[in-house]
Nucleic acid binder design. Structure first.
Lengths: 133, 133
DNA sequence: GGAATCACGACTCTTTCGGTCGTATTTGAA
DNA sequence: TTCAAATACGACCGAAAGAGTCGTGATTCC
């Protein structure tokens, strides 16, 4: 309960590493995988998501690799987390349009859940990548 | 990821209900189960944990049921959550003595994870049961 | 003594998560 | 122009966690 996924952990490590690169240089998934002992295939998939979201820039082919698309002080952790996992919520009733929570009608804690959600969101939108490099 | 368990959701609903009782009265697991459409067996187990932790008082036998052990403004949500699920952490490296995180030696985000953990903890220790009744 | 209630642990089923694999595509350089 | 190194993508599998059920026992009131 209330765990971050391994994907997010690995993603944070990877993005932090990329953020620490000298400008103009790139790093490959393989290098990061070796350096931090992260399963290559898994890391590759994570970096693909980060690339797809535009947060990191992928360069294909030989001499390819990843670099950061903008300054670390412009990147809240929420951007990284959302790129990897999409919007995450503490309970189904937060996100679902059709209330597919079985007990929705009688639920008495919706407002509390929303408050918790807002506070959790704020944690990640407040912390910047630049703080953790 | 970052989800509250159903146990915690149900527990919050139940404790909130108990907190709203007139003093001197009790409510049974069955009544709460019916009222909020929560699976009885599951709810019973949750209430047992809450009882074991001393947060609610269980009265056995006919005319038995549950009541609150102290004033709702003395009960942060963290107390409820911990009673139900024990201490929960956002990543293994937060709690484990023997670092059984496989990549512990090379992990570069420990301090960030701790910061996230502290902020999450604060959410639940700050919100009081009295606020959600 | 019986009915209503809480207590506890074992068990099953489902979903989520972590991780792997196969294949395609892009790119730089020999 | 060919090949190797790299990213891209989706399908798949096994393990772990989560949700829910069941059986049995203990306590209390009438």
């Amino acid at each position: 309960m209330l765990r971050l996924s391994k994907r997010v952990e690995y993603g944070l490590i990877a993005v932090r590493h990329i953020a620490a690169l000298h400008v103009g240089t790139v790093v490959t998934a393989k290098e990061i995988s070796d350096r931090y002992h992260i399963p290559f295939d898994l890391l590759a998939k994570i970096l693909q998501r980060l690339s797809k979201s535009g947060l990191v820039i992928a360069q294909h082919g030989v001499k390819g690799g990843y670099s950061l698309s903008k300054s670390p002080d412009q990147i809240p952790l929420s951007l990284i987390v959302n790129a990897i996992e999409g919007r995450q919520v503490v309970a189904v009733c937060i996100s679902e349009k059709n209330e597919d929570c079985r007990i929705s009608e009688t639920c008495t804690i919706k407002s509390s859940l929303f408050k918790i959600q807002n506070n959790v969101d704020q944690i990640f939108s407040t912390m910047l990548l630049s703080e953790i490099v």
